[in-house]
Design a protein around this nucleic acid. Sequence first.
DNA 1: TAAATGCTTCGGCTAACGTCGAAGTATGAA
DNA 2: TTCATACTTCGACGTTAGCCGAAGCATTTA
Lengths: 225, 225
Amino acid sequence: MKEGPDISRIAALIGDPARANILTALMSGKALTATELAGEAGVTLQTASAHLAKLQATEMIAARKSGRHKYFTLGGDDVGHVLEALMGLAAGAGHLRTRTGPKDAALREARVCYSHLAGARGIALYQGLLRRGVLQAEGEVIRVTPAGSAFLCDFGIDLDALGRAKAPLCRSCLDWSARQTHLAGSVGRALLTRMQALGWCTRQEGSRVVTFTPAGATAFAQTLG
Amino acid sequence: MKEGPDISRIAALIGDPARANILTALMSGKALTATELAGEAGVTLQTASAHLAKLQATEMIAARKSGRHKYFTLGGDDVGHVLEALMGLAAGAGHLRTRTGPKDAALREARVCYSHLAGARGIALYQGLLRRGVLQAEGEVIRVTPAGSAFLCDFGIDLDALGRAKAPLCRSCLDWSARQTHLAGSVGRALLTRMQALGWCTRQEGSRVVTFTPAGATAFAQTLG
DNA sequence: TAAATGCTTCGGCTAACGTCGAAGTATGAA
DNA sequence: TTCATACTTCGACGTTAGCCGAAGCATTTA
């Protein structure tokens, strides 16, 4: 009866405020978990899960499981293109959002990703360890080199104790603020714990922000970055 | 809380099937009345009126009263851009319309795009006129050559009468089935009208399918294709 | 003037969908 | 193992909004 591809199904998906918020949050190119996206959308986790399932069924977003987390990204460039065009149209029609918060500048700098360090500092840490030969990456598998074991032991981390646990020593984790890999796993957690013990950084209560002291920042840059 | 313009309002407008049909119908660039759009959308006039009011309130379409008719067109190029992007995404996601009945093949072959010929025949017509030097394309602008004027006059089309109307003589129209350009505008309309008058083809009532008679098809191939 | 056509508004009905509580699975941590 | 976290599924509720019949304007035609 009508001609052409069916626009309305896809547009209706974007037409829900919660889903639009989810897609807008993913527009930065960052990978986000379901819980984070639920917060962004302003709905509960159950509701967000239903939305994410619908978006994934139409391939507007892609999911990647990592541990017990599920990371979502946009389905492709064409999806971003549609969203961009819609934003332009909405902006022109005067449907701007009321306010924008400078909240996440600190989050981009340094934050905890469950138990390890993420953000710009986290990426610097991971790349620094690679450059110093402590870690070696083969695809998505990360190993600690023999020289790296000595380095970590010197830093105050008991690799043998970590090795007895079932959890993998090293794991790559995708960063949402820069979409780059940083170090997770028990070694990543131990590094953050050790840095906190050394007084290099402190965690803000009720937030994921990690604050480095001036002395801690310089020590970090010298030793690890 | 959220950043960026509010996509969802506009996307929700496109998300309704009736409104999506209306917008798709207006994609040809032609101005259509409320009654025509109601038919395209498959709803009654009252329902279409409500939809048109909503679309007009957000400036996605523009209205122009002429006598007791109300002609609607797309609000601007950016609206068309959004629709194009959505069509590409919908086509890529495999969300083509479900009912691919026997009409579909006929529609791809030859159909009316409001008032001119589209489909495989429409593309053949356009390319044939280009090859014969009747038309000349410069980017998206199409002009009738001096020799073409004589050709069209010979075919029984009064170019002078068409020139007095406000509508552009020639307009390019993108074909969804083949993603190629075909001829719209008043010349395109006049050509279809003339071919019907010559008995080359007939329109099916209540449908957009155009059926060529065997004699008409050969005449079409000799004269225009 | 009256009749006809094109469009808008009003009222009520219906169906669809977003929402969340609660329970169920899966993975990681202790 | 036992607990905690992350996510999914189920069921029910409630709001929303599309839809059309009928009536109301507005404009053209006879």
